[in-house]
Amino acid sequence: MANNLVEFRNLRTNFYTSGGVVKAVNDVSFAIKEGETLCVVGESGCGKSVTAMSLMRLVSPPGKTEGGQILYNGEDLLTLKERQMRHIRGNEIAMIFQEPMTSLNPVFKIGQQISEPLIIHKGMTKKEAKKRSIELIELVGIPRAAQIFDSYPHELSGGMRQRIMIAIALSCDPKLLIADEPTTALDVTIQAQILDLMRNIKSEFKTAIMLITHDLGVVAEMADHVVVMYAGKVIEEAPVHELFRNPKHPYTQGLLRAKPIINQRQSRLYTIPGQVPNPVSLGNNCYFNDRCEHCMSICVDKQPPLNTYENRHKAACWLYEKGGEA
């Protein structure tokens, strides 16, 4: 079994807003194994991106990471000095973003932007960096690499820019690639190409990928392991096949039912009733209780723990607890 590359232990990141404390990431624990693709799923505002930003230590005020540990190769990232952290960012852990159109600096040529981390982290000369950059541009499937090297971001399409972002992220051979909804802003055909590319990278470089998405189609295609988050908490975690075959948490079940099935006519897609609770006023209960069709009295009174069941399947729901039946 592969080792844990990154392990979140009871991570808490809070945002201090005028309305109160928002527990964006509330006692989150999960691990990413070497060379594995882990998908984090959940609706908007459930803390997926904040988890990733906490890993990079880039949560900016009013947000603050206040508890827990993030172990990277056994070392707690939260206690590292800023200088050591800079060495990790871009070099060991790289990240790509949702919006490729604005993720490149408009005043620099593509080549300069790919070369920059190579020069900083790998100590390459400009010439070596250029050679490597052109290889990287070819690697991500853009033809005429030498010409693209001298282009400006505005001359490229969204799909190409996302490829460039991936090239930049890969430039220093990171152990972990965080992809924060990398395909959300792209149209479907380009989406498929980008996902293909990421899969190739994973098999070729043995890079672990933490893929943040709300698209279950992407999850099914990419993931080895899935973490489902709801209102800042991990509510279910399982290997991908197990999760799709046997979802435990009613929220996950709802998400899977809300997916359209190709070649099957449905008058109307299933929706989970209600809305995500206001993150400021969360009590000590199951956060999903008011939307859950199986809601029991204990769900309103007590928060379910994240327990491990068969097949490395974890879920936080009273339905599967002995105490829940009472």
């Binding site: 990079m56 880039l58 952290m85 800079r86 060495h87 990790i88 960012r89 871009g90 070099n91 790289a94 990240m95 973003f97 919006e99 604005t102 993720s103 490149l104 600096n105 408009p106 920059e116 981390p117 900083i120 982290h121 972002m165 930049i168």
Partner: peptide, 13 residues
């Protein structure tokens, strides 16, 4: 802007 976040993620000073 996002490109500054991207620069931050690259570990620049």
């Amino acid at each position: 802007q996002e490109f500054m976040q991207a620069a931050e993620v690259l570990g620049l000073r």
